[in-house]
């Protein structure tokens, strides 16, 4: 459920980049203050482990499908939330860079969705209180925490997509699509996490104990409040205005043009005839629609194809020139 650059608006991308960068800076400071030098190699190597584990799939009994480890919760259990957030951020950075999973501007969203929720919500609020003792309680705790973390992450994806207003997917169906899928993924993640934690706590109990707890208790409140604020803000954008920030920007800049009446009526008629989900008409800002008209005109399309070919030719030409230059 990586967010992609193509689906978010710059405003949403920038907001979440700022949020994630802020949290990362905070975490980095925490780790430096803790003065535990061992943390750096441990974070790096466990990051490499999670990155590897994400590539190894296992079959889910009775379903014919397969799952893999997500890693956020496991890292929080092994390293504590601050280090886990940073490691998750680097795993996602590597994925964005090497596999174009997500994208560079969407990286802020992805780090927030997949790093923040498991590390600062699911781990301190669900796993830690529930996982006292071991055995079945620990299993339950990690299942619940993994599911909750992923549900929040998936919901955040929906909100961010809606607030960006690039996809036409209406809110309701999108939520109904995303949440159940991630319920299944969350259960799988929970099972895998619990199995691994059980394995480590038996074989290397000392590896599980490094995180001290006193000031964390206090700081988990901050994170909860931050999450709620963030969620509230985005829900508002996403539900009030399907176009969210774009709408807000248009309002602020005072751009609003009325389209020609005739066309609007024609469009409405067509829409009624063909609508697949009539209730969920795609509402657009007037500004973007008038831009679209220009962009899709005949000369626009011809010119588009023309410039695309020109771009290709420039590329080919440059390469030729370099080859010849090298000879």
């Amino acid at each position: 459920m990586h967010m992609a650059d193509a689906l978010i608006s710059p405003a949403v991308g920038a907001t979440l980049w700022a949020a994630s960068a802020g949290i990362a800076a905070c975490c980095a400071r925490k780790i430096r203050q803790s003065g535990d030098d061992r943390m750096v190699p441990m974070m790096g190597v466990l990051g490499a482990f999670v990155f590897t584990a994400m590539m190894i799939n296992f079959s889910i009994p009775g379903t014919g499908s397969s799952g893999h480890l997500g890693g956020g919760l496991l890292l929080a259990i092994l390293l504590g939330p601050h280090a886990a957030f940073l490691v998750m951020a680097s795993v996602l950075t590597i994925q964005a860079l090497f596999f174009a999973d997500g994208g560079l501007l969407a990286l802020g969203c992805n780090v927030f969705n997949l790093g923040f929720f498991p590390a600062f919500i699911a781990y301190p609020w669900i796993y830690r209180p529930l996982a006292r003792g071991d055995g079945s309680r620990a299993w339950m705790a990690s299942m619940l925490a993994a599911v909750a973390g992923l549900q929040l992450g998936a919901f955040a994806v929906v909100l961010e997509t809606k607030a960006s207003g690039i996809s036409a997917l209406p809110f309701g169906p999108f939520v109904l699509l995303m949440q159940p899928i991630h319920l299944a993924i969350g259960l799988v993640e929970g099972i895998a996490t619990a199995a691994l934690v059980g394995f480590v706590s038996e074989a290397r109990p000392e590896a599980l104990a490094p995180v001290s707890t006193s000031h964390e208790r206090r700081s988990r409140w901050y994170w909860l409040v931050a999450a709620l604020l963030m969620g509230g803000l985005f829900s508002w954008f996403a539900s009030e205005r399907p176009d969210g920030l774009e709408w807000a920007l248009a309002k602020v800049s005072g751009q609003s043009q009325t389209p020609s009446d005739g066309m609007h009526r024609e469009a409405a008629r067509l829409q009624q005839k063909t609508a697949f989900l009539p209730g969920y008409a795609f509402q657009t800002t007037e500004a973007s629609r008038s831009g679209a008209n220009a962009g899709a005109s005949v000369s626009g399309i011809a010119g588009g194809l023309f410039t695309f070919s020109a771009a290709t030719l420039i590329g080919v030409g440059l390469r030729r020139a370099r080859r010849n230059g090298a000879k």
Binding site: S288, A292, G295, G300, G303, G304, T307, F308, A311, T312
Partner: peptide, 19 residues
């Protein structure tokens, strides 16, 4: 990313960059 949602042709010239 700052182009409008329906923008198609105006994106084309930008392919010069990756190419």
């Amino acid at each position: 990313m700052s182009f409008g949602r329906y923008e198609v042709s105006a994106l084309m010239p930008l392919f010069v960059y990756p190419f």
